[in-house]
Write a protein that binds this DNA or RNA. Sequence first.
RNA 1: GUGGCUGUAGCUCAGUUGGUUAGAGUAGUGGAUUGUGGUUCCAUUGGUCGUGGGUUCAAAUCCCAUCUGCCACCCCA
Length: 452
Amino acid sequence: MQQPSIPKGTRDFSPEEMAKRNYIFGTIKRVFQLFGFRQIETPAIENLSTLMGKYGEEGDKLLFKILNSGDFAGAVDTAEWNAQNSNKITAKIAEKGLRYDLTVPFARYVVQHRDQITFPFKRYQIQPVWRADRPQKGRYREFYQCDADVVGSDSLLNEVELLQVVDEVFRRLQIAVTIKLNNRKILSGIAQIIGAEENIIDITVAIDKLDKIGLDNVNAELATKGITQAAIDQLQPILLLQGDNAEKLAQLKMALAASPIGLQGISELETIFEWLKPLSIQNKVELDLTLARGLNYYTGAIIEVKANDVQIGSISGGGRYDNLTGVFGLENVSGVGVSFGADRIYDVLLQLNAFPETVSENTAVLFLNFGLQEQAIALTLLNTIRQTGINAEIYPEATKIKKQMNYANQKNIPWVVILGENEINQGVVTLKNMQSGEQKVVSHEQLIEYIV
RNA sequence: GUGGCUGUAGCUCAGUUGGUUAGAGUAGUGGAUUGUGGUUCCAUUGGUCGUGGGUUCAAAUCCCAUCUGCCACCCCA
């Protein structure tokens, strides 16, 4: 018989892994709630018309598409099959797809339910998303995003609060991170100044690689994209900015003096840094002009978070998008949000060995099973213990004690209650601490006190 | 989507220039110990060597395809 398997880039989660994952989800959820976000869910599948065209050309390729039910092949005639144009055929045989992120479905949700929503609307959402990417370490085809977004408010206070959310989540998870900040308007300003506005995507993609491939290679790539040498020369002082955030902004202000949009981006960042100052942010927040982000719906602030001590892609990201609801027919509703990548955070915590000991949602007490008579008494005791909120279970079979003890040991259960003939005759139980190996004879009433 | 590496018991890995019946540790199960786990000792289950083809008298070993995991690019959480 062939071993069963699961699709590439997907995973099963064991009880131990789920306990750790729930620790991450719980932490993020708590912080979201602290800042006034409320939870929603949306379906795993969306209409392809909702998803297509929101993530750029690459994104469309990475969408999982779902075949229409019924005789989907009948929708395509022989000539179309023979033309072998995948895009055209796909459009006829698939009208649904798996969600690629949570932001676009959220924008759809806002537009669809606008009459029930009070703006500004703060929502959070923790659900899996799917991408038909080629898997690698920290890159899966099914993974969870934890998003918090505010729509219907232009205030930069939202950006500031979201940065606080990010800082607080990673403070609680005890992961040291660097929060990188940029503004799409600055990138537009740069393109404007060097007279290459049509190439803004090429420019941002190229300078995004600066710390990876170096200045010379970036310049070479810009040249192959048809950027003039004069423009590339103009770009150099901007790429080579030095100093702290304030110094960089000051230099940028001079460089982009002729670009109103660039100046606006700078002023937005200045405001954010200014408001952030008294808030005792623990992690480093730095201006990073090379931060471009591929998602092309961002229009203002761009945020990306990197773990300081673990080599992995970004573990969190986000930004402001002014027109996302516009494509669904609701204009002038600006949104801003952040997204946490739970699966990568899991990998980081594992590598840092930073999961707390107490994350287990484990059984606290195991009652050994000595047979029918003992079992009856154990069950009533179990009941009262569970009423106090303590996780407790009884071994379901009256097998050898050795085997039952081993079960407790394997499951890391800290307390074992021994309740056999001897104990019943004396009206007590024997309580064993599995870590120290100590045993105590206690009355039924004392039992709970000892466990707590 | 492009290029590269990889795959032997549940897990970690041996396996000679292709040569009889593929090994070890660990985990599992049973026992030493019919009211005591994590240490010890004994016994024992478990593999059509990722899958499918091919070359050969003979393939875990060589060749091809395919799947998986990983790495780089692309992109991103």
